[in-house]
């Protein structure tokens, strides 16, 4: 599906400091509807902090963030209303440990969106089927593999019918053989036109699925562009160094 010109999320001059360390030093970018944006870069450069600022799980110190026309950094906003519209997928899944897969997906629908149990169940089963886990609906998180847990957590986020999906290193906690099933779900999502921001070390995914790539280091955006440009003709020497180091480690963009 094509990327439209409508802006879904816009980040302006975002700053965040932890103690003496400034993790984000003025980050600005925008994501259009249907666009999949990959954020890559060395560990500890503020990528996850940036993502968590977008739904204000982490409060930014300075700067503004807009979801469509709404400024979500405004102090007058009901952040819980905003978060319902932004799906978040965590590195370590964070499925609710006391609930089955079905209840994990259903909980937000019933308690946050106020759907009836019947409606919520239908919706949840549909989302579980979408990630290929309908037959695991009654399994508890501990009875699922890491890849299955992550797919349930994607279904849980999708069920809320978000305008935007945020993925915080969704495959970093997975055994290598389980990464593929999660990336495949994400790829389908991107192809269906979901607007998404993906913090990832999966260069192959960033390159083949995403429309835009941001390379971040030390709290700033070093380089941004379409994947072919960033991966094949990086303009900044730092980008080049990072990519060659990554390809040494992981065997390049798969």
């Amino acid at each position: 599906m094509a990327v439209s010109s409508k802006i879904v999320v816009r980040v302006e001059d975002l700053h965040k400091r932890y103690g003496n360390e400034e993790v984000l030093k003025g980050v600005s970018f925008a994501v259009r509807q249907g666009e999949a944006l990959a954020i890559i870069g060395p560990s500890g450069t503020g990528k996850s902090t940036l993502l968590r600022c977008i739904n204000r799980l982490t409060e930014p110190d300075r700067g503004r963030i807009f979801l469509e026309e709404t400024e979500i950094t405004s102090p007058h906003i009901d952040i819980n209303k905003i978060r319902q519209q932004i799906g978040f997928v965590f590195q370590d899944f964070n499925l609710f440990a006391h609930l089955t897969a079905l209840d994990n997906v259903r909980l937000g629908l019933m308690k946050v969106k106020g759907l009836s149990k019947k409606e919520a169940t239908e919706r949840a089963m549909h989302e579980l089927a979408r990630v290929g886990l309908a037959e695991k609906a009654h399994a508890y998180p501990a009875q699922l593999s890491g890849g299955q847990q992550q797919r349930v957590s994607i279904a849980r986020a999708l069920a809320m019918d978000p305008k935007l999906m945020l993925f915080d290193e969704p495959t970093s906690a997975l055994d290598p053989e389980l990464i593929g099933e999660v990336l495949q779900v994400m790829q389908h999502l991107a192809e269906e036109g979901m607007t998404m921001i993906v913090v990832t070390h999966e260069m192959g995914f960033a390159r083949s699925v995403c429309h835009e790539v941001i390379f971040m280091e030390k709290g700033v955006i070093v380089e941004q562009g379409p994947p072919d440009q960033v991966f094949l003709n990086p303009r900044q020497p730092r980008t080049r160094q990072f990519l060659s180091k990554i390809s040494e480690l992981y065997g390049g963009a798969r």
């Binding site: 819980n80 932004i86 978040f88 370590d92 964070n94 499925l95 609710f96 937000g108 957590s153 986020a157």
Partner: peptide, 17 residues
């Protein structure tokens, strides 16, 4: 784990919920 609270808040639940 702290992630349980984060995941709940990310869905749009209030702290009480």
């Amino acid at each position: 784990s702290r992630g349980q609270m984060l995941a709940a808040r990310a869905l749009g639940m209030t702290q009480f919920q």
